[in-house]
Design a protein around this nucleic acid. Structure first.
Lengths: 172, 172
DNA sequence: TTTTGTGCAAACTTTTTGCAGATTG
DNA sequence: CAATCTGCAAAAAGTTTGCACAAAA
């Protein structure tokens, strides 16, 4: 269900031939007249090593060897989002997750377990239609988030054992 | 673009004939073995008066005459979400919005302006497919969020005047 | 050398928790 | 009456801001 094949990677198809993803990202920075700094490279490299969206705090921990301040991570991710090389999504508690896209549409979405936080993939489905309509209405810099939440199979079993059955939140 | 016709209301079709939306909500509470209290009724009534998702803080302000504590609003909305009568969505800054659904699927989604926060509607598109797949995988209590973000037409114009053109965040 | 970015500290906002007293069924 | 909910106060978590110094172009 979770594979790491190159063809499935969110960035396949975005990076130009003969160019590393990092170089592509730097190109985006240059076009936006942003400087290429050590912390930014470290953050991009950390993002490159992941397929699923990462929490800021976790990203910061993985960056410890680079001595990158948490505030810098916040500022860089916000800047990256502004220029569209990073995509923000949300956890069920409202905190942010980031993943590197380099401008590409996502190849899949995610489902996050409300109880244990584990994430898994959900097949991509196109939202170009609604986005095009917004563009026609005059909106710019359009992005979207799609997130699924639920109790994962493991937590569902625990939950059923412990809690008294209430109204099923979602009936399919 | 934003209409308040009854047929378009998110709750049309959910409330049983001869039953007010409030009564329906109370039924949900009872089934979940939750108590029907003054603050909860006030919150439900406040939600009923809105079509678009509301921020917690704003909801609290509209509840001032009911002397309902902000903490209670948080707790009630979380409980309402657990039993599925309320749907949570997010603003671009990560804060939560809530709307009453009484268990119904949404009739539309929203687009929020990153600059001024204004929200508007986006046509609903079905996500039953992915949700059914998750159910087959063993997930329970499945919900989803779909949010669009962008610069609204007005803010787009201002933005174009002020800022130097960077990489377009989204190309359609 | 000029502009932009970073680190540190502190402030701020939003959300959560503990507990005594009030309310519901 | 017993279980649940509320309000208050305080804490925690997450995020933003100001400013002096550092680094990039």
């Amino acid at each position: 269900m979770i594979s790491a094949t190159q063809s499935n990677h969110p960035l396949s198809g975005v990076i130009k031939p003969g160019e590393s993803p990092l170089e592509t990202a730097c190109g985006h920075l240059r076009q936006a007249r942003m400087r290429i700094t050590k912390p930014r490279i470290a953050i991009i490299e950390a993002l490159l090593q992941r397929e699923a969206p990462v929490a800021i705090e976790q990203l910061h921990q993985e960056l410890q060897r680079h001595q990158c301040d948490l505030v810098t991570v916040y500022r860089c991710l916000a800047a990256f989002e502004d220029i569209g090389i990073v995509r923000r999504s949300f956890q069920h508690n409202g905190t942010s997750l980031y993943e590197l896209t380099l401008g590409a549409q996502p190849k899949h979405y995610h489902v996050a377990c409300k109880a244990c936080g584990r994430t898994d993939r959900v097949d991509y489905f196109p939202v170009e239609g609604p986005e095009r309509m917004l563009a026609e209405r005059g909106y710019t810099q359009i992005t979207h988030i799609v997130e699924f939440f639920g109790l994962c199979p493991a937590c569902s079993k625990k939950h059923a054992r412990n809690a008294a059955p209430a109204i099923p939140a979602t009936r399919l």
